[in-house]
Amino acid sequence: MIEFQNVAYNYGGGELLTDISLRLPPGSFHFLTGPSGAGKSTFLKLCYGELHPTAGRVTIDAHDMRSLSRDDVAAMRRRIGVVHQDCQFLDHLPLAENVALPLTASGRDAAGADLDDLLGWVGLKPLASHLPPSLSGGERQRAALARAVIMSPDVILADEPTGNLDWEMSVRLLTLLMELNKMGKTILIATHDMNLIRTAKSQVPARVLRIRDRRLQLAGSDL
């Protein structure tokens, strides 16, 4: 479980986030919304330890993120799948190897039926041998999702995952995330796409958080 305790973050040019306290219970589904530059991406980076708070603390399973060694951070990241809007891949490796990267990096066998099933689940099995630069935006997002879940993480963080996708592809990706949530995964999606949020809320008990004036609030009907 990820927990924020009175967290603040300062980029150096003033405080971006102030006094944020939040618990993401296992199996929960959250949206994080707010205007551009409000600090949504920063919030997600604090969740997986790419940034550390300038005040307060972020814990994962009661362990202070700041106190983790570099190897512990790596181990922790294998339990948190991250999907970015501008998802990055190793462009010289075929799609299947990119998706399997978390497995190979942790010394596990990447070959086998599980990888095929996963690629089939995100609809990319026919493109397994393609290189990432040849993929469309939607295909890249689905590939990033497949890579994020291949280690069967407890938490999936998605930063504007549908920002570059058309509506049909956005819904398809959302459906995949909702399926994961039904499997017990904790989902946190940063987005400003209200239609996406409405679609999700009609199908899963999602909560909507909003960053406003540097603070975290419950938004809309969750207010």
Partner: peptide, 16 residues
Amino acid sequence: AQVIRVLRLIGARDAY
């Protein structure tokens, strides 16, 4: 740098 960033993100240890 991009390769390294991706690898850190997916949980690869420094030694790897």
